[in-house]
Nucleic acid binder design. Sequence first.
DNA 1: CCTACCGATCGGTAGG
DNA 2: CCTACCGATCGGTAGG
Lengths: 204, 204
Amino acid sequence: MVGRPRDERTRNTILRRAADIASKDGLEGLSIGRLAADLGVSKSGLFGYFGSKEELQLATIRIAAGVYLDEVVQPALEVPPGVKRVWRLCDNWLSYSERRVFPGGCFFFTVGAEFDARPGRVRDAVAAAGLEWSRLVARTVGDARRLGELAEDTEPDQLAFELISFMETANALSLLHDDPAAYRRARTAIRARLGVADSAARPS
Amino acid sequence: MVGRPRDERTRNTILRRAADIASKDGLEGLSIGRLAADLGVSKSGLFGYFGSKEELQLATIRIAAGVYLDEVVQPALEVPPGVKRVWRLCDNWLSYSERRVFPGGCFFFTVGAEFDARPGRVRDAVAAAGLEWSRLVARTVGDARRLGELAEDTEPDQLAFELISFMETANALSLLHDDPAAYRRARTAIRARLGVADSAARPS
DNA sequence: CCTACCGATCGGTAGG
DNA sequence: CCTACCGATCGGTAGG
């Protein structure tokens, strides 16, 4: 009953826009009045969909997680388990960041940095999403090792940490310095770490 | 004449507190009224030191850069050039983050993520500080290579990117998940990358 | 789902 | 360096 079934399309439109704004200005920088003006609706009308700013923030995180799943995770699961799937996951992530699916780069990078030193439900939701992602990367690495495609002494959590480090930092540096070279550096580092060939990325 | 020489100690106290707040809540989350209340002075009195919020933000960045220099850079320059100096620089950074010299972790990580998608002087100052740091790491790596302590085909910019990735991500994950293991992972990754022994960090 | 409003807080200023 | 204030905006509510 909550969420007015008939208006779910409108609700999704609102949240997709909210995620775009939050990727640039954060979930605190996202104001209800500005979002309403942006969408050409009244502030109290928009407010009614969520009931509080915190609920709007939490719903925005859920929508962004859906985008992330569609853009990064799902297409990688079409590749069979192994090093190639690990590479696909990383390359999809870098492409998602590079294409500015969210205009402020990775939504979860922005809001992670914003809430990492504050308590509350928003922080908990952001942290949970990040943990799920870390575990997915580690599990995918673990599969590749079990298949004999990575050294036997590979520690999945450690390698996942390293891969995620390259991705996050490419996102951060490309935004702060308007420098696409960061993505090239991340791909070089990830390829070296996985021992995959420099195939798709060297037409020039 | 700007900055009232007689009050420079007060000014420094204000700015050091401002940097602490900004490391948690960002440079936009830093409000003049809250900062004044925190320090027990009037809002307009504090305002008079800076003249605008943007000038307060820029002065806060300069103070934070000084802390960074004292905590991370200077002590590493006491070690002679080479791989050990690179390691020292990285280890100092991780310690600076881990000891919460700023309560919200690395000041520049927080404000970098906050301003990476907004134009303006604050962003430019944050980006310039980040670039200076990247170049210092790359130069230190280049020195080590020239001394024959790293492989001849080491690319300083690439290795600097990788080292910085591990540091930034340790900071981010330790905060978001309240998990000190991130620092261990970063040190493991950096040691492997530099080929330095697991000396100081394995008493247990 | 709208207009009109609430108290709180924002950056900034007047006046002393 | 203070008190007192400015208009703008914040999240949220009343009333229809």
